[in-house]
């Protein structure tokens, strides 16, 4: 178990280090930063001044090490555009993005798990086929379009939910639904196939031979074994949601990290962009690590190896 933990942790750290390097390289490859920061009307002297002020005149490896050193302590420097500490910018907005991701994932799970289980129990039936088709349609819908449709119907016509902003939990419902839609097909398919495999297994035949109730057979014996791949993919999907919140947060004017990313990219605010990319990647890695740990809890065989 400890070895398993250590191995997963090492992998997670390596991934973070790789992303760190990429995040740095990304902003430096896009041309001379001093020119973009100084703006279109700057003179050569202005640009030179910016270069020195931001430490851009020093050798790249040195800049990188310095940035890593500060990033490790949570200091991502000063935002060029917002004139605030990047760390504060991000941590102010992080709760909104997390709330959105969790709402999205909860909705996705609440829809995908029962439907996946029903599909598996009725494999090959009309119910099963209808569920697959609906899931496919959901996947084919672009999220900004779905967002607009929801805004118009639920927001404008019916007036059930607020259209934009972050004032209350109701603000998270519509964007949550939109995010969930993208995650439902994968979760549903995996739940269905996992349940079909589990239900056909010898230990389910044993469970039936023991005279257990249908509820216990499906929810205790089959679902527990079908859950492992679903947990992994759910973590990945939550990662996608946090990253994909750029579009949704913009559409619904939720001032989360995604919105911040969009703003800072359009304003060429590279310390913020770097930090957001790094953060999202680290969260993603942490989520996968969390999923691995949860799987180890679910599967005693993993714990042992």
């Amino acid at each position: 178990m400890l070895e398993f933990l250590a191995r997963r942790l090492l992998v997670a750290l390596l991934v973070c280090a790789t992303v760190l390097t990429f995040a740095f390289a990304l902003t430096r490859l896009g041309g001379d930063l001093a020119i973009s920061i100084a703006g279109p009307n700057a003179t050569a002297a202005d640009i030179e001044q910016v270069r020195v002020a931001y430490g851009l005149d020093r050798p790249l490896p040195l800049q990188f090490l310095e940035w890593v050193g500060r990033a490790a302590t949570g200091d991502f420097g000063q935002s060029y555009f917002f004139k605030e500490k990047v760390s504060k910018l991000i941590f102010d907005r992080l709760p909104i993005t997390f709330a959105l991701g969790l709402v999205g994932l909860s909705i996705a799970l609440a829809v995908a798990l029962p439907l996946g289980i029903v599909s598996a129990l009725r494999e090959g039936s009309w119910t099963d086929r209808a569920i697959s088709i609906v899931a496919l349609l959901g996947q084919a819908m672009p999220s900004f379009w779905l967002g607009l449709v929801l805004m118009i119907t639920l927001g404008l016509h019916l007036g059930w939910l607020p259209i934009s902003g972050t004032g209350s939990w109701e603000h998270f419902v519509m964007p949550g639904i939109v995010l969930a839609f993208s995650a439902i097909p994968a979760l549903l398919r995996l739940t269905r196939s996992g349940m079909i495999d589990a239900l056909a297994s010898d230990y389910i035949r044993t469970a039936r031979a023991k005279g257990l109730s249908r509820r216990s057979i499906v929810l205790k014996h089959a679902a527990r074994n079908a859950a492992m791949p679903v947990v992994s993919i759910a973590a990945v999907q939550l990662g996608f949601m946090l990253g994909g919140s750029i579009v949704i947060e913009t559409v619904f004017a939720l001032h989360g990290v995604g919105f911040l990313a969009w703003e800072s990219i359009s304003k060429n605010d590279f310390p913020t962009v770097q930090a957001v990319v790094l953060l999202l990647a680290c969260i993603y890695t942490l989520l996968t690590l969390g999923a691995d740990l949860l799987n180890a809890v679910l599967d005693p065989r993993l714990r042992a190896s």
Binding site: D202, Y203, K210, S213, H221
Partner: peptide, 23 residues
């Protein structure tokens, strides 16, 4: 299901896979 496991029980040819790995 009231009879199975209670008044009539069955064991199978595949001991390796007949128990649930998760419990």
């Amino acid at each position: 299901s009231r009879l199975r496991g209670n008044r009539m029980a069955m064991i199978f040819q595949e001991p390796m896979t007949s128990l649930n790995p998760a419990y």
